[in-house]
Amino acid sequence: MTFETWIAFAAASAVLLIIPGPTIVLVVSYALGQGWRSALPVSIGVALGDFTAMTLSMLGVGAILAASATVFTALKFLGAGYLIYLGIKLFRSGGTLDVAPRTDAASTAKMIGHAWVVTALNPKSITFFVAFLPQFLDRHGDFATQMVIFEATFLILAFANAAGYALVASRARGMVRSPGAIGLFNKAGGTLLIGAGVATASMRSAS
Rank of each mutant, 00 (worst) to 15 (best):
99 V>F: 07
130 V>K: 07
166 A>R: 04
150 F>K: 04
72 F>H: 03
92 R>K: 11
93 S>C: 06
101 P>M: 09
157 L>C: 07
107 S>T: 14
121 L>F: 14
98 D>H: 12
78 L>D: 13
103 T>S: 07
108 T>V: 15
158 A>L: 10
88 I>C: 05
144 A>C: 10
153 T>Y: 09
73 T>G: 05
94 G>E: 12
102 R>Q: 14
149 I>A: 05
123 P>A: 10
88 I>L: 11
147 M>T: 13
51 F>N: 11
66 A>H: 06
72 F>T: 02
101 P>T: 10
80 A>R: 00
52 T>G: 07
95 G>K: 13
105 A>W: 02
161 N>I: 12
59 L>N: 09
116 W>H: 04
132 F>G: 00
67 A>Y: 00
134 P>A: 00
126 I>P: 10
129 F>H: 12
154 F>T: 08
162 A>S: 11
75 L>W: 07
162 A>W: 03
120 A>T: 03
49 G>W: 00
144 A>N: 12
144 A>G: 12
132 F>W: 11
158 A>I: 04
52 T>P: 02
127 T>W: 12
134 P>V: 03
52 T>E: 06
60 G>K: 04
52 T>Q: 02
135 Q>M: 15
98 D>A: 14
80 A>M: 08
95 G>F: 07
113 G>P: 01
59 L>T: 10
130 V>I: 14
117 V>G: 02
88 I>F: 10
162 A>T: 02
53 A>C: 12
66 A>G: 01
90 L>D: 01
140 H>W: 11
53 A>P: 08
137 L>A: 00
72 F>V: 05
52 T>Y: 13
120 A>E: 00
70 T>W: 05
94 G>H: 08
86 L>H: 02
80 A>D: 08
82 Y>I: 00
79 G>D: 09
149 I>F: 07
135 Q>P: 13
92 R>H: 10
146 Q>S: 04
103 T>P: 04
82 Y>A: 01
49 G>E: 05
120 A>V: 03
154 F>A: 10
80 A>T: 08
129 F>L: 13
147 M>W: 14
116 W>R: 02
131 A>G: 13
100 A>C: 04
99 V>H: 09
47 A>G: 03
142 D>M: 05
62 G>D: 12
137 L>W: 07
152 A>V: 14
49 G>M: 05
87 G>Q: 04
165 Y>W: 15
126 I>L: 12
80 A>F: 04
115 A>C: 07
51 F>S: 15
73 T>H: 07
121 L>N: 11
119 T>C: 14
103 T>C: 00
47 A>N: 01
80 A>K: 06
114 H>D: 12
163 A>T: 04
143 F>L: 15
121 L>T: 08
